[in-house]
Design a protein around this nucleic acid. Structure first.
Length: 644
RNA sequence: GCUGGUGUAGCUCAGCUGGUAGAGCAACUGACUUGUAAUCAGUAGGUCGACGGUUCAAUUCCGCCCACCAGCUCCA
């Protein structure tokens, strides 16, 4: 009997009999590993634990403690859910059921609408299937066998998938119990490993992601190898919901969205306005340092402007209808750029003038579909911290670097995790993108060179470019794990042509400038939504709407409290006095719930010594300090933009 | 826009199978003059999202619309 060498991740090598399986190898190491192990990585390819190994190999045993293991675990769970649905409603037809970042879903065609009342039934059936400890058995099929089989069980969507599998790729099915699904695998050894299920939601999903197709029912669920892990996950979800900016926005009186004004048209309340203005002032200071000039442009513009730019034809279905005034038509501005281009072209420019950097907090209006509106994250009126940099081609890279650095400064200042995407055009979908293929190749190459020179870690998003050029996009996740694009830096060779922008070069000839569009925050509204969730409403002192709550213990201390407030005003410290006739515990509770960073309790002792008793939000009593020391400390926190 | 769900006082929520609504907190009034997360008592507050229908009677049943929530599609 021949032997083979198996190499482990720690580089140790052990000898096994030829034809051994990852499961047997796991069992030879420890029983615990064998029980937790769900799939194996053999020579870089994931396989079932029961797959025989017939030659020397490197192996990695993946347990449910690894992200890869959980992906397989959830994928296998999706099959269990499909089986459960099939048992409950035999007429169900299945499309696709992949794992996700948290759990899995299956797209199902079923004439009957699945509702929340059905979830417990589905979960119960899934638990039954788990208890049956059905093993997943793999079978490889020819295309015709696969077509014949899935036709015989009426799974029409699978036929379509089979037809789209490229030649030469193995077609396989997995069977557990009476249920067989088309699947490339791999899978966990048996359904008994899945100990806890929770069906989360059902929603429509267009077949193949095309809104002209029928809608399937997307059943989302999550599963775990233990009940405890499920409970922890559900608790984590509850925590996340508490950070939701829509909830905190109401509780902390930051903003208001009311049908009386209109969906997706947020109103900034006094507290939220402080927050937003503080961020705007922060960026304005940076713009001054970096040679930007501020401009202001109107909220509407002649429709012809947007016909020239191409925004109107490209996005006419997501703009508010034009307004007719006398014989002209005007559009609520969906973008600031055409206005800025008019500023550029209002006078001739020398190559010596460039770059020209025009910045504006410009409010734009877009008709977003009603189903898309989400708090401050997706709205119909929002303000971009926009700027357009008109530069010579030899200045482009430096200007791009500068713009990316500014964006990075923003995220660093707030300690936010961000991922970077280079958004390129999709050559398969060329009609969506203006300009020549050569222009696109050049602009994309330039963006990539800048990203590489700055050692950015990025993904490339094909088809994510804007119609006039590629972008470097900065993407963050909200409390519920949804991804949103915030900052963006874009290269544009199209608009200079369309608006016939030019400068006179050293050669006394006319040249086209290149435009960089950039917005470090992106949309102030969306940025604030993420910021609120990032801090869970516990804002660092420098941006907190109210920085200091002054709490007099009794009526006799209110006058001193008012003196403190006046002093704080002169020091540019935002404070409020709670002069109500309430016990100190009550006032403290309220100030804590408002998440005010500093709480000052003042009574006889403080009045006598010109001191303040400091309590930090969430940290309790810090003891008394002199007023002057307190002011010095908090001013430092504000000036250094401390996270504290 | 599409699929499913939700809509009751300022906020958070209760209200079984139809008989015009209730709690806690907040607000207001009074008492208490208070030392680190809720003092006590009282008062007031609702076209039960809008409109239409069925019914002797609709917050409750039906229809249509609106808003919000989850997802899909879209996102300059």
């Amino acid at each position: 009997m021949s032997q083979i060498n198996i190499r482990f991740p720690d580089q140790s090598v052990k000898t096994f009999e030829k034809g051994t399986t990852p499961l047997a190898i796991a069992q030879s190491i420890s029983r615990g590993l064998a029980e937790k192990c769900v799939v194996a990585d053999v020579n870089g390819k994931q396989v079932d634990l029961t797959t025989p190994i017939n030659e020397d190999a490197s192996i990695k045993l993946l347990t449910t403690d690894t992200p890869e293991g959980m992906q397989v675990f959830w994928h296998s769970s999706a099959h269990v859910m499909a089986q459960a649905v099939k048992r409950l409603w035999p007429e169900a037809k299945f499309e696709d059921g992949p794992p996700t970042e948290a759990g899995f879903f299956y797209d199902i065609f079923l004439p009957r609408a699945i509702s929340q009342e059905d979830f417990p039934k589905i979960e119960a059936e899934m638990e039954k299937i788990a208890k049956e400890k059905l093993s997943y058995s793999r079978k490889e099929l020819s295309r015709s066998e696969a077509m014949e089989f899935f036709k015989s069980i009426g799974q029409d969507f699978k036929l379509d998938i089979i037809q789209n599998i490229p030649d030469g790729q193995t077609i396989s099915s997995y069977t557990q119990g009476e249920f067989t699904d088309l699947c490339r695998g791999p899978h966990i050894p048996h359904t008994g490993l899945i100990k806890a299920f929770k069906v989360m939601s059902v929603a429509g999903a267009f077949y193949k992601g095309d809104e002209n197709n029928i809608q399937l029912q997307r059943l989302r669920a999550i599963s775990f190898p233990s009940k405890k892990q499920l409970d922890e996950y559900l608790t984590m979800l509850e925590e996340a919901k508490r950070r939701d900016h829509r909830k905190l926005g109401k509780e902390l009186e930051l903003f208001l969205i009311t049908p009386a004004i209109g969906g997706g048209l947020p109103v900034w309340l006094p507290n939220g306005t402080v927050l937003r203005r503080t961020l705007e002032n922060f960026i304005k200071e940076e713009l001054i340092k970096r040679g930007y000039q501020e401009v202001i442009t109107p909220h509407i513009g002649n429709l012809n402007l947007y016909k020239t730019s191409g925004h109107y034809p490209y996005y006419s279905d997501s703009q508010f209808a034009p307004i007719k005034v006398e014989d002209e038509e005007y559009l609520l501005k969906p973008m600031n750029c055409p206005h800025h281009h008019q500023i550029y072209s209002s006078k001739p420019h020398s190559y010596r003038d460039l770059p020209i950097r025009l910045a504006e907090f410009g409010t734009v209006y877009r008709y977003e579909q009603s189903g898309e509106l989400t708090g401050l994250s997706r709205v119909r009126g929002f303000t971009q911290d926009d700027a357009h940099i008109y530069c010579r081609h030899d200045q482009l890279k430096d200007e791009l670097v500068n713009a990316v650095e500014l964006t990075q400064l923003v995220f660093k200042t707030f300690g936010m995790d961000v991922t970077t995407r280079l958004s390129f055009r999709d050559p398969q979908n060329a009609e969506k993108f203006a300009g020549s293929p050569e222009m696109w190749e050049q602009a994309q190459r330039e963006i990539k060179e800048v990203a590489d020179s700055m050692n950015l870690i990025y993904q490339i998003g094909i088809g994510e470019a804007s119609f006039y050029g590629p972008k470097i996009d900065f993407i963050v996740k909200d409390a519920l794990g949804r991804k949103w694009q915030l900052g963006t830096v874009q290269v544009d060779y199209v608009m200079p042509e369309r608006f016939e922008l030019e400068y006179i070069g050293a050669d006394n000839q006319k040249h086209r400038p290149v435009i960089i569009h950039r917005a470090p925050f992106g949309s102030m509204e969306r940025f604030l939504s993420i910021l609120i969730e990032h801090y869970a409403g516990n804002f660092p002192t420098w941006i907190a709407p109210i920085q200091v709550a002054i709490l007099p213990i009794a009526d006799g201390h209110v006058a001193y409290g008012e003196q403190l407030k006046t002093r704080f005003e002169s020091e540019k410290i935002r404070s409020s006095v709670d002069a109500r006739n309430e016990k100190i515990g009550y006032k403290i509770r309220e100030a804590e719930m408002k998440k005010i960073p500093y709480i000052l309790v003042i009574g006889d002792k403080e009045v006598a010594d010109t001191k303040v008793a400091v309590r930090r939000h969430g940290k309790g009593d810090q003891g008394a300090v002199t007023l002057e020391n307190f002011i010095k400390d908090i001013r430092e926190k504000i000036e250094t933009k401390s996270q504290d």
